[in-house]
Simulated scan of single mutants.
Amino acid sequence: MDDLGSLGSGEKAALVILAFLQADCRTSAYGEELLSLGKDFNLTRDVHSPGDLLEDGDLETDGHVTSCITAALSDMQPSVELQWPRNHAEAADLQQIAEGLREIADQLERRVVAEATLNLSRNISASPSEEWKDHLAWEVDRVMKSGVGLEHLPQERVIAALTLTLVKGVCEQTPRLLRTLFNAVLQYFNPETAR
C-alpha cells in the first residue's frame, strides 16, 4: 500500500503503527505485548536509563526537563517510550500522522468497526497466519465498499486508520496475536518492509 508514501522506510511505518496501537491502551496484557513488540523492533528505549536523566534538572537536548518530579512520577509513566527520529520536524510529522489516523479511527469506530473487528477475528482464528494479511485486506476492502461516511477525508488515510483500528480491536481481545498482525499490517502497507 504505497498510499502512505510519506512514511518512507519500514521503520517509520512501524513507528507510526506502534504509536497508533499504543494510544489509549485498555488492558495490561495488550500493553505488555506492545512494549515487547516495540523492544523487538528497536522502536522503544528505556526512559529511566541513567544517560537520559541529568542530575541538576536542566533541559535535555530533546527538550525534556528532568528533576525530582520525573522520579516521583516514574511509577505512573511507562518505562519505555517510542524512539522518534532525532530530527524534530520529522518526528513531529510522524506523530502528527499517527494522531491524524487516531482521529479518523475514532470516527470509524463509532460507525463500523465493531462488526468488522468481529469478522476479522473470526476469519484469522480459522486460518494459518500466512493468510492473515489477505483476511485483513479483504475486511478493509469490504468496509470501505460499504461506505464509511468519511469520503471528505483522504481515502488512503481512512484505509490506514481502519486497518489499524481493526488490528487494535482484535489484539485488545487477544493480545498474543499482536506480533503476527503487526507484521501483516507492515506487509499490507509496504510489502518490502515486513519482517
Rank of each mutant, 00 (worst) to 15 (best):
S6C: 07
G31C: 07
Q187P: 00
V112A: 13
Y30K: 04
G57M: 03
D134G: 10
E172M: 01
P175V: 02
V80Y: 09
N183R: 11
L120F: 05
Q95S: 06
A137L: 06
T66E: 10
L150C: 04
L162T: 01
S125Q: 12
D106W: 09
S9E: 08
L43A: 01
Y30R: 04
S127G: 00
H152Y: 11
T44F: 07
Q173H: 07
V158W: 12
E99N: 10
L53P: 02
A13K: 12
Q95W: 08
D46H: 10
L94H: 02
E99W: 03
D75S: 14
L94G: 01
D134E: 12
E109F: 05
E99G: 02
L35G: 13
R122T: 13
V113E: 10
Y30Q: 04
R86Y: 03
N190Y: 11
V167A: 02
M1N: 09
T174W: 12
G8C: 00
V65P: 09
A13H: 13
R110S: 15
H135L: 05
D2N: 09
F20T: 04
L181P: 07
P191Y: 05
G5V: 07
I17M: 15
A161H: 08
S125P: 01
I104W: 05
V80M: 04
S67W: 10
D24Q: 15
N87T: 00
C25W: 12
I159A: 15
V143E: 02
R176S: 13
L108F: 05
L118T: 14
L15C: 06
A114P: 04
A91N: 06
L136D: 07
E60K: 15
N87D: 15
E99S: 09
A72M: 12
L164Q: 03
Q173P: 01
Q77R: 12
T61A: 15
L177P: 03
Q173V: 11
A92M: 10
N119I: 12
